[in-house]
């Protein structure tokens, strides 16, 4: 094998030139072409599927958000605003982070194992809270009624959806807090329940942001 220094340098030069030329193709021309096509064909989606309500952007249809009460004096974690439908629990992402000059959306999961004591406690607490918050008037939530997605956090921490079962479970609470007939709220959930794509892809789901936008409209009309 020829491993003389000039020969190796010449080879490495070829490697670098190949990398630079391919960077031009795949790292400059290709992404610019795709961006042009995306912005031309699907500008709304390419920019994050922003959703509006009352003439104001209220987030993305794809990204989950929290529906909390304002923080009170001395409070560390805000309480949920129970007049709105609540999404999935958003437990910690871990304290380690690389670059903190921006407080961006940080996506990620708890990464706790099924036998992790902390996770067991989070699930227990979440289940107790779901039962407590949603047992209103004559309606009592049984522990076996609570679906798994209501007490576990998602992979991204930004799950925009809940299961139809979790939405149904919140109906009585929502009706009471907003002074609406239970039947109207049930109807609202049914309207916003999306089945499996083509009947078999994914799972049935309810987009919490869209549901709350519709709820707000229902409250103002009522």
């Amino acid at each position: 094998m020829n491993i003389s220094v000039p020969h190796t340098a010449r080879l490495l030069g070829a490697g670098l030139r190949a990398l630079l030329v391919l960077t031009l193709v795949t790292g400059v021309l290709y992404p610019l072409l795709i961006t042009g096509l995306a912005q031309g064909l699907f500008p709304g989606r390419a920019n994050g599927s922003k959703t509006e309500a009352n003439g104001r952007v209220v987030g993305s249809a794809l990204i989950g958000q929290s529906y909390n009460l304002p923080l009170k004096e001395g409070q560390q974690t805000p309480e949920p605003d129970l007049k709105w439908f609540q999404g999935r629990p958003q437990n910690g992402l871990g304290a380690n982070s690389v670059n903190t000059q921006y407080d961006l959306i940080l996506s990620g999961a708890t990464n706790r194992s099924a036998d992790n004591a902390e996770l067991v406690q989070w699930v227990r607490d979440a289940k107790a809270a779901v039962i407590r918050d949603n047992s209103v008037g004559g309606y009592t939530v049984k522990p076996s009624d609570v679906p798994a997605d209501a007490v576990t956090s998602s992979g991204s921490g930004l799950d925009p959806d809940i299961s139809p079962a979790y939405a149904d479970l919140q109906v009585h609470r929502i009706a009471e807090r907003n002074g609406l007939p239970v039947g109207h709220v049930h109807h609202l959930v049914d309207e916003h329940t999306e089945g499996r794509t083509l009947g078999f892809l994914g799972e049935p789901r309810v987009n919490v942001l869209e549901l709350n936008i519709a709820l707000e409209r229902l409250v103002t009309e009522h």
Binding site: L119, V146, A148, V151, S154, D161, R205
Partner: peptide, 17 residues
């Protein structure tokens, strides 16, 4: 697994959709 059995499904770290 303890946490998943209490939750009633292996949805921890999974997305609803």
């Amino acid at each position: 697994g303890p946490a998943l059995e209490i939750a009633g499904g292996a949805m921890e770290g999974k997305e609803v959709r």
